[in-house]
Simulated assay, not measured.
Amino acid sequence: MNIQQLLTLAILIWNFIVFIVYGLDKGKAQKGHYRIPEKVLLSLTLCLGGLGAAFGGYFFHHKTRKWLFKLTWMLGSIINAGVFYWIWR
C-alpha cells in the first residue's frame, strides 16, 4: 500500500468517525442526555470530516435545518475534495 492509499484510507476512516459522532449526538438528543457541543461538531466537519458530517446529518436527520451546518458541510466537503485532489494529482 502506498502513501496515497494510506492517506485516503485515513481520511475515509476519519469521515466514518465523524458520521458516527453525528449519530451519537442525535441519539443523545432524542434521549435528552448531555449533547456534543455544536462547535465540536462544526470543528470535526472542517477538519477533513465534511463528507462524514454531511452524510451523518442527512442519514440521522440531525442539524439539517440549521443553515450554518449546511454551509459547513459544503465547505468541509470542498476541503475534502481539495485534499483528495492534492493526494492523487
Rank of each mutant, 00 (worst) to 15 (best):
D25M: 11
T64K: 11
H62N: 11
K26C: 09
A53N: 12
N80C: 15
L44E: 05
F55V: 14
Y22P: 06
I3N: 14
F84L: 15
A29P: 10
W14T: 09
I13C: 10
A81E: 08
T72Q: 00
Y22H: 03
N80D: 15
D25N: 01
Q5G: 12
N15Q: 06
G27E: 08
G32A: 06
I78G: 04
L46I: 14
G76V: 02
K70G: 12
M74S: 13
W88K: 11
M1F: 04
T72E: 00
V83H: 09
L9N: 11
S43A: 15
Q4L: 05
P37F: 04
F60Q: 03
K66D: 10
A53L: 11
V21G: 07
V21F: 01
K39S: 12
G50V: 00
S43Y: 03
K66T: 03
R35P: 02
F69S: 04
G57N: 10
V40T: 15
K63V: 06
H33K: 07
W86Y: 13
I78L: 14
I13Y: 02
G49V: 05
F16M: 14
D25Y: 05
G50K: 06
Y22Q: 03
G23V: 02
Q4M: 11
F59E: 08
A53Y: 03
N15G: 07
W86R: 06
F55M: 10
T64F: 00
L7A: 13
L24C: 04
Y34N: 12
I3T: 13
N80H: 07
I20M: 06
I87D: 07
L9P: 00
Q30E: 13
A81Q: 05
Y58P: 01
F16P: 01
W88L: 15
L42N: 04
L41A: 02
